[in-house]
Amino acid sequence: MRTEKVEYFSGPDRVRALWRTPDVVDGPTPAIIQGPGWLGLKDAQAYDRYHQGFTDAGFAVLSIDYRGFGESEGSDRGIVNPTHQLEDLVNGVTYLTTRDDVGAIGAYATGGTGGGNVVLLAATDPRVRAVISQMPVADGRDWLHRMRTEFEWVEYQALLEQDRRERVLTGKSRLVHPRNEVMVETLERKQSNFKKDVDVKIRMEVPLSMVDPLLHYRPGQAAIGLITPLMVVAVENDATTPTDHAVAIYEAAAGPKSLVLQRNTSHYAAYAKYADVVIPQMVAWFREHLHAPGDVVVRSDKPSRS
Rank of each mutant, 00 (worst) to 15 (best):
E4Y: 07
K5F: 06
S10D: 07
S10Y: 09
G11H: 12
G11Y: 14
R16L: 14
A17D: 04
R20M: 12
D23L: 13
V24M: 04
D26V: 13
I32E: 04
Q45I: 15
A46S: 08
D48A: 14
R49C: 06
Q52K: 12
Q52A: 11
G53L: 03
L62R: 01
D65C: 12
G68R: 04
G68E: 03
F69K: 07
S72Q: 09
D76M: 08
V80Y: 05
P82E: 00
H84A: 13
Q85R: 05
L86P: 04
L86S: 03
L86M: 07
L89C: 06
N91G: 01
Y95N: 04
T97V: 00
T98P: 03
T98D: 02
R99C: 05
V102W: 07
V102I: 11
Y108F: 15
T113L: 12
V119W: 03
L121E: 06
A122S: 13
A130Y: 12
V137Q: 02
D139H: 15
L144C: 05
R146T: 09
M147P: 02
W153I: 04
E155R: 14
Y156L: 11
Y156C: 08
R164L: 12
R165D: 11
V168W: 10
T170V: 10
G171D: 14
P178I: 01
N180R: 15
T186W: 11
E188H: 10
E188P: 13
F194D: 01
F194G: 01
V200F: 02
K201N: 11
I202L: 14
I202S: 07
V206A: 11
P207A: 09
M210R: 09
V211Q: 13
L214E: 02
G220V: 06
A222E: 00
A222D: 00
A222T: 01
G225P: 03
T228C: 12
T228H: 06
V235Q: 04
V235N: 02
T243E: 12
D244R: 10
V247W: 12
E251N: 13
A254P: 08
G255S: 11
P256F: 05
S258V: 00
L259Y: 03
T265K: 10
H267L: 05
A272Y: 03
A275V: 08
D276R: 13
Q281T: 10
V283T: 14
F286I: 05
E288A: 15
H291N: 02
A292N: 09
V297L: 08
V298E: 13
R299V: 14
S304P: 06
R305F: 13
S306H: 11
